[in-house]
């Protein structure tokens, strides 16, 4: 059994994914004494796939759709082999987006059903996530937050209400039927309208409920990381 969990944070732009990731990082490091590894949905671990990832993401077209899917599979599998799997015996891994965001992207940009995209991705991805956290917020509020923050690029063809509403539909569909997506692991709906502290507490309780954090009882602390 591997030691620590692979946790994914998903949600619309502006729902607080980065804030939650940083909060979880501090929680793990400060309270549990373990420094997590944080990764992104694309980590450019498969060098040959890098160009197709950039083109497929920023210039999506029917011509590059399948190459983009294959590139995502290659990059995620390389990330799993080179980063995630070696880390999990020693530390949790927290990913800012992973599979759900790809399902939403292909639904919006290529009109592919999430189940169809999932099957294509799952064919080449060997490692499941332990817990996928879906931060849920009304797109009007998430867009307000996304446009209000400093130093973050807002994409004109993506960070608009109709697109974000469609993305949220995909998220909702997945949250309501997670059994169809086993690589997501357990899927938890998180109310992102709450304050950052409350969101972190919600997530912490989910981690405890799923037995994904080590015990803090001083008498049992020695078994931390050997769940």
């Amino acid at each position: 059994m591997r030691g620590y969990p692979f946790i994914v944070i998903e949600g619309l732009d502006g729902t607080g994914k980065t804030t939650l990731r940083k909060g979880l990082f501090r929680l793990w490091e400060g309270l549990y004494g373990v420094t997590p590894l944080c990764i992104l949905t694309s980590n450019f671990m498969a060098a040959d796939a890098a160009a197709d990832i950039v083109e497929g993401k920023y210039q999506p077209s029917p011509d590059n759709r399948d190459r983009y899917l294959q590139a995502l599979v290659a990059d995620k599998e390389a990330t799993l082999v080179r980063l995630v799997r070696p880390a999990l015996p020693n530390r949790p891994v927290i990913s800012d987006r992973w599979l759900v965001s790809e399902l939403a992207f292909f639904a919006v940009k290529h009109d592919m059903k999430p189940g169809e995209t999932y099957e294509r991705l799952a064919a080449g991805i060997s490692e499941p996530v332990d817990l996928t956290l879906v931060l849920d917020l009304d797109p009007r509020d998430s867009l307000r937050r996304a446009h209000g923050r400093q130093g973050d690029a807002v994409r004109e063809d993506w960070d608009v209400l109709d697109v974000q509403a469609r993305v949220r539909q995909v998220y909702t569909e997945i949250v309501n039927g997670p059994a169809a997506y086993p690589l997501l692991g357990s899927v938890a709906h998180i109310d992102a309208s709450a304050s950052p502290g409350s969101v972190l507490d919600q997530v912490w309780q989910v981690l405890i409920a799923h037995d994904l954090v080590p015990p803090l009882d001083p008498a049992t602390e020695a078994v931390a990381g050997e769940r």
Binding site: K22, L27, G30, L31, S195, S198, L216
Partner: peptide, 29 residues
Amino acid sequence: EEHLRAGGVAEAGLRMAYCRALAASVAVE
């Protein structure tokens, strides 16, 4: 953190206080 390690994780108020403090540390970063 010391209180939580001493068995305070079950206390909702303590847990929330810690989460709020961590969120504040993210905000000041």
